[in-house]
Every structure is written in C-alpha cells, then in structure tokens.
Design a protein around this nucleic acid. Structure first.
Lengths: 358, 358
DNA sequence: CTGAAAGCGCTTACAG
DNA sequence: CTGAAAGCGCTTACAG
C-alpha cells in the first residue's frame, strides 16, 4: 500500500527518520527500532511511529542504511550483449531470482569489450554491491573482482578456473551428443563453425565435437573447423565459403545461435536446401529456430535457469566466503528438429548450385 | 588501469579515504580534494595521494559520497519482460546511453504485474535513484513515483499523460500506414489482433487501423477486432478462431510481435499459406520475422533508439525539474516483406482447409 | 522500554 | 594551500 494520497503537494525535502520521530514524538533510535522491528519498543509506540511514517510517505534511505550496516542488498550483473536472446534470458533469470531473494540487480552490458567490462566492474565495486555475476570476455574482470574480494560467480564460461565459482552448461557432453546425432544420420563430413576456442565454451564444444568424430572413426579434418569470431558478416561469409567448397561438408554444427543464423542465411543465399543438401545443428536454441521451416535442431541451454542458479550460488558464496569454490554444471537437451537429416545421396555431386550470393 | 597486482593478499578491510590520507601523510580533507579534483591542493601532494590510493587499491565508496552529496548517479529501469526482444532491445539502449552519460542502471523485470512494478519502484525510491525509466503496466507506478517526486520517463506507453515525460512511437500513424498497405493490396476484410485497447499503445494502434479503414470506405466490422490479452496460448487460439470462420479475414494485422507469432503458428497449424491464403503484418519487428519464409511485413520500432532517447530525456528532466513535461514521438518504418500480398482471388472459397488443429 | 552518543565513508564550507 | 569540524541518514551498543 503506497502511502496515502496526499491532497496537498508533499514537502520538497524527502522525509527522514528524524521527521518521523518528531511526528511520533519519540527519538530517532526508537523510531528506527519501531520501523525495522529489531529491538524493543512499546506497544502503542510502534503503531504511532508506523502511522507517522505512512503519513509522511517515509521511505528509508537504503544507501544510508547500507553505509551503517556495511552490507548491501544489490548485486552487479555483467553480460556481453542484451540484444542476443541468450543473454537477455540469462538476465531475466537473474533478475527474477534476485528479486525473490530481496536483492536489486544492477545491470551492465559490456558489448563484448574487456575494457568496458572492467570499467563496469569498478563501478560495481564503488557501489559496494554484495556480489557480481558475470559472463566474462577476458580474465581481467575476474582478476579485478577477486583482488577486491568481491563475491563472484562466472556464468556460461569461466576464466577463474579453480579460483572462483561458476555455473556452466555441460558443453562437451551436449556438443558430443549433437555430433553423434549427425553421425548417426550418416554424415561423415561435419563442419564445426565456432567463434573461438580459447574460452571454456569454445574449447569444450570443440572437444565434444572431436570426441564424437574420433569415437566414430572419422578423420579430423582441420579445414572443417572454422573459427569466425564475433562479426555477423564475417560469420556469414565463412559459412558461404564452407558451402561453396568443391568438397563441402554435408552438415554444419554451429557453436552458437548467431553462427547458426549465419549458416541459415548463407544457405538461403546460395539456394542450399535444409536438410536435403545440408544438415544444420545449433548450440543454443533461439526463438526463430522453431519458427522457420524446417525448424533447427539445437541444444537447448535454458538460460533462465542458468541465471537463477548463478544467483543462488552467489548468495551461498556471500554467506560462506571461505567455502571452497564450486562449479555447477547444468545439463542441456538436444532438440532434434527438421534441419538435420541424412546426407544427400551423392554428396560430392552437389557442387555449383544456385546463385553465387553476395 | 585497475590498481597494482598485489603480490600479498590485500587487507581484509577495504581501504577508506582515511587509509589513503594516512599513507600519504595528509588529512582526509586534503586526500578528498586531491582525489576528486575539486578545491586546491599542492602540486606534489596530489601525486602523493594518488599514488597512495593506487597502492592501496582504493575505490571510493559511491554510496557514502552520494549520501553526502545528495545526488545519485544511478537510474532505475522497469520493463515488463526481458525475454521479449522488444524489452531486451529497449534495455540495451538504455544501458548503453546510461553508461555513456556516467550512470549505472538498476534493472527490474516486473512480469507485467502492477504489484511487482510498484514494489520495484519502492525499491528504487529507497535506493534514491536519480530517476526512473518505465514501461508501465498500470497507472499506479506513475502515481507512486510522481508522489515521491522522482524524475520519470514513460516509454512505449503512457499513463501520466500531460503530467510526466514520455518517449513513444507514433503508433497511430504507423498503424494507419500498415493498414493502408494492406488495403492497397486489395484487402477489404482486415482483422486486427490486439492485446488490449486501454493503454496508449493499444488505443492508438486501433485508432490508426480504424482511420485507414474509414478513409478507404471499408465497413468497421466489430468481430474483426480481437483483443487477446497477453497469454500466448490464448492468442494462438484466437488467431485460429479467426482463420476458421466461415468468413475469414484475408489479412491479419497483429499489434505486437507476440501476437504475430501466434498468428504465424496458427496459420501453420491450419495449413494456411502466407501470403497466398492470408496476409500477415506485425507491429514490432522481431528477429525471427526476417528468418522465416516468407519474411513478415512489420513496423520496425527501433527499441534501442527508444531506450537511448528515454535516458536522454530523463537526464534533461533531472537537470530541469520544473520544465513542463514533454512527449517525444519517434517515427517507425514499415518494412514491406513477403508475408503480405494480394488477397486470394475468391476469398470466400477458401473454407475448410487442412487439419482442424489443436 | 527509551534516548543520547557514536560512527559507517565521504565531502565541504570555513578558519587558519 | 591545508586541516578540524560538521553533517548526509541511518543503526546500534550502551546507559539509564
């Protein structure tokens, strides 16, 4: 119930506990005790104070309280790109869980820049957040926050291995299962289009892919693994290059939703039909993948759960600062959909297909 | 440059300005002046203090500073659903612009609940944010924040008409243009699938639709305007009902991206082909709309720009608390794509098409 | 059961 | 040019 509807315009100055105390005819100490519920206070008094507070539209200053108590009820969150549905879902999960636990979320979007990331972390330290959840783009942010003794949880990928908490997806296993699915369909030339292979995500996804290939006795052809970094245009060009080769792969495993989009568009540009000419599988499901025809086979990560778990872990860490770091690994389901099917009968034949594309 | 890499583990207690002052051999006042740059300080002294601060990994406590200065450098942001790309893009724009202007963003997701929204606003007031940007779901939050004299900008829709600032899209005009586009293609039975018509968004989009119909001399058939609220399942059912009528519309204008998705899926369920059997246009473009075949004709809102503009407006408001409220109206482009085409030759004929659907 | 006093970390007139 | 003092709004032992 948001205070009373003041008929007259409220005071220009915001009401403080001093105002409440005076209105109720008690000391600030007593007013504080009445309002917070800690410490004794006479029966009538409590009500009198609460009434006065309501009448004044008093909202305690959380910053002043935190300054005195030296504990904060906000957490800092640092993601790479809110416009990507993965990070947006992650932020949604974090926000929900934080609210449930009584915390406020400060959110910064670092555009994938390591410098912006550290700058945002500094701001979080200045604001004395209780802890930080981050999808790091470089080790710097982890080092910085650790040095400042800020409770920290890395999500999705990890740079502080063994030194900080993390909530990750079982990348290697999910990646292996997707590759096995493709092999099971009969593919023997499977390309992996990936952003990079230094981060834990890239490393593990690549490892899962290789494991599956090796287990099936497929040769590991270097040219089938393409690292396209983070530029959408470059990724699309890389996908097109792959498809225009004299010996194109019959399947492409795209290591994230952006790369899958790049392959999808490149295939459309070149008139390559899914799944007849090419099978496509994606790590990370995105809304469009179940809207298109055929739908795209994908690893469903449940980014919302990832975010919720990260907050839970962070609050545990805040409670027990000395406990050894822990990495929580979440499973992921492979959603088999229409974009993956058996390879073309005579794969080698499909060569110079439709238009040359842009 | 994030402090030095301390070889020994840092102190358990965070360094304060007192520590810095002692290390530099000056008073706290002088240390403060040296660090903030306000007020005189001797030449050698400034360097000595800065050096000491760096050595201690000193990060000023922003909450303490704000308590003293009574001004805050954070803004509160309240959106309805981060998982919807519209709100995610909006938040991305707000976050970027806030960072550029030196502000931190506190973000809350209210799940479309008016109660959650007010609760989050209370938290923002407690944290003494400099201002709030909100996509309101009910008038309550606007009333609450106004009563507490918190600078406020409403985005996308507006409840505090004439009383608070707003950044809106020109809903009526864009809606009219989309409808005209459909009429131009030859459609005469155009349905409007909308969430509700009490908010400014719904009201204006509906008005634009009616204006275009009226101008073209089309009868305003009540049964062609369907308000489906916010449940995805219900929206899909409503869309299916529309399509299964004995006298189905030849075009549907969906008033947001979720409703467009509902129509898209319902059409697929029923084997209704776009644009041959049905034309579909959407208010608000979403990533999937340019991935599917045919692509979906949509009003492109540029949610990122909406967010950036809202922050700019909010900071202006903070500067000039007394200035009269202003509403900024942003244009929107109609992206004509493949989902809209001429109506079927003999519309009435297409009746009991494929499967009955769920 | 209540109030005076101290103090969280900072900044800012004001003496000197 | 510098430092002692006051104060932002709150909470919390501690006397009484």
């Amino acid at each position: 119930m948001p205070a009373r509807d003041g008929a007259a315009p409220g005071p220009v100055r915001r009401a403080t506990i001093k105002d409440v105390a005076e209105a109720a005819g008690v000391s600030r100490s007593t007013a504080s005790r009445a309002l917070t519920g800690r410490g004794y206070v006479g029966l009538g008094v409590r009500e009198r104070v609460q009434h006065a507070a309501e009448g004044l539209g008093y909202v305690p200053d959380a910053t002043a309280r935190h300054l005195k108590q030296q504990v904060s009820r906000s957490i800092g969150v640092l993601v790479s790109d809110l416009r990507n549905s993965f990070y947006a879902d992650l932020a949604a999960g974090i926000s929900q869980q934080a609210r449930r636990r009584g915390y406020t979320m400060m959110l910064a979007d670092d555009n994938g820049s390591a410098a912006d990331e550290v700058a945002a972390a500094e701001r979080f330290v200045a604001l004395r957040v209780a802890g930080v959840v981050v999808t790091p783009v470089a080790p710097d942010v982890v080092a910085y926050l650790s040095r400042h003794r800020v409770p920290l949880v890395e999500v999705d990928r990890q740079f502080g291995e063994g030194a900080s908490d993390a909530v990750l997806v079982d990348n290697k296993h999910a990646s292996r299962r997707v590759t096995e699915h493709l092999i099971g369909l009969g593919h023997r030339r499977i390309a992996l289009l990936i952003d990079e292979m230094e981060w834990t995500t890239g490393r593990e996804r690549h490892a899962g892919y290789e494991e599956a290939c090796r287990a099936a006795g497929l040769p590991l052809e270097e040219s089938l693994v393409v690292a396209a970094r983070w530029d959408a245009g470059a990724a699309r060009a890389a996908a097109a290059d792959l498809l225009r080769r004299p010996d194109p792969p019959t399947a492409i495993f795209a290591a994230n939703n952006l790369l899958a989009e790049a392959v999808w568009r490149a295939a459309a540009d070149l008139g390559v039909r899914l799944p007849d000419d090419l099978s496509l599988a994606s790590f990370d499901d995105a809304p469009w993948m179940s809207m298109v025809t055929p739908q795209v086979t994908a690893v469903e990560q449940d980014a919302v759960a990832l975010g919720e778990t990260a907050v839970t872990r962070l609050l545990e860490r805040i409670e027990a600062a000395q406990a050894p770091p822990r990495t929580v690994m979440l499973g992921a389901r492979v959603l088999q959909r229409g974009s993956t099917g058996p390879p073309p009968a005579r794969a080698a034949v499909r060569s110079g297909s439709a238009g040359a594309g842009a």
